[in-house]
Simulated assay, not measured.
Amino acid sequence: MIYRMTIALGSLISGLVALYLHLWKLGLAGTLACGGAHGCEYVQGSRYGWFLGVDVALIGAVGYALLFVVALLGTAPRWEDEKWPTLALMALIFPALAFTVRLKYAEFVILHGFCPWCLVSAITITLCTVLVFLDWRRLRRLGVVG
Rank of each mutant, 00 (worst) to 15 (best):
R47P: 03
L19G: 14
K25M: 08
L21H: 05
Y64D: 04
L16N: 02
Y42F: 08
F51Y: 13
L21F: 04
D55K: 10
Y48A: 12
G27D: 05
T31D: 03
G60R: 09
D55T: 11
L66V: 15
L26W: 07
G63S: 01
G45N: 04
T31N: 07
L21P: 09
L26C: 09
A37V: 13
H38T: 13
Y42I: 00
V69K: 12
I59V: 12
G49C: 04
L21D: 10
G39S: 01
V56R: 10
L21S: 13
Y48G: 12
S14L: 02
H38Y: 09
A65R: 10
W50S: 02
A65Q: 09
I59N: 00
E41V: 14
R47W: 08
R47F: 03
L26H: 06
L26V: 10
A57E: 00
V54H: 10
V54S: 09
V43T: 11
G35S: 14
I13C: 08
L58A: 08
D55E: 12
G35L: 14
W50C: 02
V62G: 03
L52W: 09
K25F: 05
S14G: 14
T31I: 06
W50M: 10
Y64L: 07
Y64W: 01
G35Q: 15
C34L: 00
S14D: 05
V56Y: 03
V43N: 00
R47T: 11
S46K: 14
G15A: 00
L28F: 07
L58S: 01
L23W: 00
A29E: 03
L32R: 05
L32A: 01
W50T: 09
A18F: 11
L26E: 14
A57Y: 02
L28E: 06
L19V: 15
